[in-house]
Simulated scan of single mutants.
Amino acid sequence: MRHTNRASRWRSAAVLAAGLALVLSAAGCGSEPAAGGPHAVTFAGSPANTPVDALEPLAIAHGVYSRHGIDMNFTHVRSLSEAAAAVVGGSAQFGLLGTAAVAPLIQQGECFKFLTANQKIYYRLVARPGYPLPNAGAPYPASARDLKGAKIGVVGLGGIQEIVIKRMLAAAGLTPQDVTVVAVGGPATAVPAFQAGQVDMYMATPPAEQLLGSSGFEVVADFLADPALPSYGFVQTFTGASCDFVEENPQVVADFCAATAAAHQFIRDPANGPAVVAELASSGGTDQATAEQIWKQYGAVWTDGAITPEIWESQRLVLPPGVELPDMAEVVDPACQQTIKSGVSS
């Protein structure tokens, strides 16, 4: 697979944590609650603001976390590797964890606890209008033959989108060398690149399709709708903490789990649709009508927060070569799962 820019190599968690410490500590690290007050914690989260990508800012704004005893400072990081480093280094008490970033660290001796599951994959692979798609309408994997020779835009190199492309190519009897993968960033930069013909296909994330308009693309693969696709239903990220923090702060972790479960309930409740749409319009820089379209298309991506055996086993999809999937019984916090199952009020 040819790249138009070189992916950064993995840096150790210790180095990343040291670099993040100044930023995150300035934002406010965790502390014990004062006289029955909420627990002040820092969460190393998604670079994106929209509820499709990160429900935490929405839940914070609506008091979901504070009602469950958590005063959460949401801090943006640039990658899942940085989030893992922040958790390991202690500059964030909780963070957004991805198995591709964390499993190698676990194999090296670090210890993490996965607490809740986040959203499912929500993008669609689209092609420019008029791009030849001789296998359009054919079932997967025959439809993936149309990828051959294409320049395909992804948010960033080396991530889940590129991994999925490799799986699609293999299923269609193609190789990574049959396509060129281009890092085009988020919709603000990706949409102009797509429209200018810098890429032939694009892993579209919201609000790209709304910006392009219904006549501005052709759907090649829908990862929300087609169970045959390799990442259908795949949960991209989890919330988590270090084993030391979980062991030393059981009440903080219990309150965080209850708050996060409530946040999932909040975003899944149709009654809260107007609040979610308003946040989408604000954080995504779109008008109300566009935000409503985005939520109608992507609102179902959020799980109830439980980490099921099926969700955990599917993580094998993204593991680097030579890295084993950690034993679910050892790394998924059972008390947090019980909290989710028992149900909490948002």
Rank of each mutant, 00 (worst) to 15 (best):
D146G: 03
A54M: 09
P134D: 00
S25K: 13
K120H: 14
G186M: 06
G98D: 03
W295E: 00
S342I: 03
E218D: 07
A196W: 07
V77E: 06
V41Y: 00
Q297I: 06
G305F: 00
G273H: 12
Q177C: 06
H76I: 06
Q93N: 02
L16D: 01
V87A: 04
A335R: 14
V23S: 11
D200Q: 01
C336H: 02
L55E: 02
P192N: 08
F114Q: 08
L319A: 08
S91F: 02
T260D: 06
A18C: 04
W312D: 06
E313T: 14
N272M: 10
L96G: 01
S282K: 15
P274E: 04
P227F: 10
P57H: 04
P321V: 10
Q210T: 13
A54Y: 04
L96M: 15
P334E: 09
P139Y: 03
I340F: 00
Y140M: 07
V331K: 12
V191F: 02
L229N: 03
G45S: 13
Q293S: 05
F194P: 07
R316F: 04
T75D: 00
I311Q: 11
L16S: 04
P320N: 03
L80K: 02
E218G: 02
A263C: 09
R145Q: 11
V277K: 12
L24A: 06
A259H: 09
A172W: 04
T308P: 05
S143D: 01
G137D: 10
A190M: 08
V155Q: 09
L55N: 07
V277T: 14
D304T: 14
G240S: 03
D200C: 02
P129T: 15
V41D: 00
A26R: 12
H76A: 12
L97T: 13
N73Y: 02
K151N: 03
E279K: 13
S12K: 13
E110C: 06
E218Y: 00
R145H: 05
E330G: 12
R316S: 12
D200I: 02
L115P: 01
T180V: 13
R124A: 15
V332H: 05
M72F: 00
Y202E: 09
K113C: 10
N5P: 01
G130H: 09
G233N: 08
V23A: 14
Q297V: 07
V253K: 11
G37S: 08
W302E: 00
A183M: 03
G36A: 11
S215P: 00
A196Y: 02
S31R: 15
L229E: 00
I163R: 15
R67C: 01
D53V: 01
Y140W: 13
G89N: 11
P321T: 08
V64D: 00
L169S: 08
S342M: 07
T50G: 06
G149T: 09
G90D: 13
R2S: 06
I294V: 15
Q210K: 13
A289G: 07
T175M: 13
G63M: 09
G90H: 12
P206S: 04
A61V: 04
